[in-house]
């Protein structure tokens, strides 16, 4: 067996080792970028506890959601969504900024509106800041 291996090894030249290493690195990079998971595919907007609407994260869209205090403005872009404006006093949900991970939620409690992203392979249910 050893003799056989010694027979094959000289066939691999120094540059070949580099190419093999580069190929393996490419596999690693591809796996890391494509299998990171947590990419959201849908935004779910709730108002007063009821589902107000579900929107795909493919095209830009602005949704106006009525609540007890006024209108909450949800902004959707490819791959992300945010609460752009809310009549609530402390603006927590607006300051959360863009949501990009499946499972993340922005809640505008005073106006009873929430925005959550769903998707396959979300790594956690929610994020707290």
């Amino acid at each position: 067996m050893k003799r056989k291996l010694a027979d094959w090894l000289p066939l691999v030249k120094p540059g070949d080792w580099l190419v093999i290493a580069a190929g393996l690195a490419l596999c690693g990079v591809a796996a890391a970028t494509l299998w990171r998971g947590g990419a959201p595919d849908k935004a779910v907007v709730r108002a007063g506890g009821e589902v107000f609407g579900e929107y795909g994260l493919n095209a830009p869209l602005r949704v106006e959601v009525p609540g007890p205090l006024g209108t909450t403005l949800i902004e959707i872009e490819p791959g992300r969504a945010r609460v752009a404006a809310d009549p609530g006093p402390r603006q927590y949900c607006v300051r959360q900024g863009w949501l990009t991970q499946a499972g993340s939620v922005a809640i505008c409690a005073p106006n009873q509106v929430s925005l959550s992203l769903t998707g396959r392979g979300g790594q956690y249910d929610s994020l707290n800041y």
Partner: peptide, 13 residues
């Protein structure tokens, strides 16, 4: 590519 450094293995990959 220089054959001294890169053999059929590189080409194959």
């Amino acid at each position: 590519l220089p054959r001294r450094w890169f053999g059929p293995v590189s080409l194959s990959i």
